[in-house]
Computed example of a mutant assay.
Amino acid sequence: MCVFGSSVRMQVCFLLLLIQLHVTEGCRLEGAGETKPITAYTGDSVLLPCSCTDLHTTPGTFTWEKYITNNWVEISPESDQYKDRFQLVNDHSSGNLSLLISHLTVEDGGDYRCNLTKSDYRHFRLTVEGCTLNQQTVSVTGYVGQSVLLPCSCFQLQAKPHTLRWISFKGSDQKEIFPKDQTNLYTDRVQLINDHHPGNLSLLISHLTVEDGGHYSCSINATDASVKLTTRASPNPKPGVTTQTPMINDKTTAHTETSSEKETPTNPNPHYTTIIICTAAGVLLLLILAGIMCWKLREQRRGQTETDVGQTGQRRQQDGKNDSDVLYTVINPQTPSNKEEKDDVMYSTVVHSNTITSVHTPVISEETTLYASIQTN
């Protein structure tokens, strides 16, 4: 009981009264009476939100129920049936009553209800979309020694199947190769490629062999998708690697393919032929250019030789002319006293020579012959 003796006591008593009234009022659900639709995918998690309008309010009691076979059945996260996948999320707030469901399955879909009382609840309609496979048969070709991807996926890429198996068929025999290899032929050679999409169930097979060819099945929830794998020799075989011809069960097909291969041989790598042709053409062009250059060089040398020979001949001709240069001097012995004697003429010959020997050239007249000798070095 509060005794109002001071203003401080009055304030304290007033606050206590408000708290008492608030606790008496209790939790009121947010969105009470409404039906909230929620869509999720198999393998994923979903949160069913339920809380008091005041998160600091503590409800007296509350329950979660699911509508099963025309009845509302209470769901207890502590029970063995739900404890691994159902949990309450209070987030350190007493007024948060949300329910988290993990690893969803198609069976988790349905109507849920968060109850405070029979008249105070919030309703949820959960739809869980599962994986639907494309059941059309797909044909894939792989090469020996390389890797190949066997395609398989759900129409809903966000949906992850609860179970998945890859099965290999060898005639009438079938064995699981993923997730557990029952053949020991695919150990460490197969892996699932989801590419960040849970609905991508494609299987990658590495280091292919001829024996890997055949039929495969991608199986989930009693639904199968078929893949036919054909193995062939590698188009670019590496040195030291032996390629084998793929085994084909159909004898007619095998005979036809063998005949066609014998009749029409194929070049495994046409790029090599192109490179060889281009190289040969380049070498031939270089040889032609080298021949032309050699011919031009030879002509130039021949022209220079002829020019030198001509110049030498000219010099020799000039030397000959110098050697044969002759100077004639006419000496007329006439004097004023004997001008009438016209027949008495004396000739003197001067010969210029580059040689050491002297040159004697006679000059003949009618009566007297006179020799003149001049030596030049």
Score class of each variant (00 low, 15 high):
V148K: 05
N269Y: 07
T58H: 08
P237Y: 08
S353C: 00
Y121Q: 04
T69G: 05
L55D: 05
H123Y: 09
K170W: 12
W166T: 00
N70M: 12
Y41I: 03
C2L: 12
E176A: 07
N332Q: 09
L104F: 03
H123N: 13
A372Q: 04
R165L: 13
K36G: 03
D224S: 09
A281G: 10
C27M: 01
D120K: 09
C152V: 06
E299Y: 10
T127E: 14
T231P: 07
G60W: 07
T57P: 02
N338D: 13
G320R: 01
N354A: 12
D91Q: 06
R298C: 05
P265R: 02
A372R: 05
H271L: 15
I292R: 06
P268Q: 14
N269C: 06
P161K: 06
V128H: 01
D91S: 09
G5I: 02
S79D: 13
E74Q: 08
E257M: 11
T243Y: 00
A225D: 00
E107H: 12
L100I: 14
R85Y: 11
L229K: 02
Q136W: 15
T274H: 09
T24M: 03
D84Y: 03
C278D: 06
I19G: 10
W64Q: 01
E341N: 15
I275C: 05
T274G: 07
E299C: 07
C27H: 02
L204H: 09
F14E: 06
H271M: 15
I276W: 03
S168V: 11
G60F: 05
Q158V: 01
H271I: 13
K66G: 04
D84R: 04
T245Q: 10
P237I: 09
T305G: 07
I277V: 15
N115E: 05
S172Q: 10
G171C: 08
P235G: 03
D80K: 13
D250V: 03
I38K: 01
R113E: 03
E299N: 09
N96K: 08
T141N: 10
G43S: 04
V106M: 05
K339I: 06
D325F: 15
T256Q: 10
Y41H: 11
D325G: 00
C278T: 12
L157D: 05
V359K: 11
T312W: 13
C218M: 01
P198C: 01
G171K: 06
K118D: 03
C152F: 01
M1L: 10
S324T: 10
L201D: 02
T58L: 12
Q375D: 07
T24C: 13
A281Y: 09
Q334V: 05
N134R: 12
K170L: 08
T61W: 10
V144R: 09
S172P: 06
T361P: 02
I19E: 14
G43Q: 04
G26C: 01
Y347A: 10
F124H: 05
T243S: 10
V89F: 12
M1V: 11
K160E: 01
T256I: 15
A233M: 12
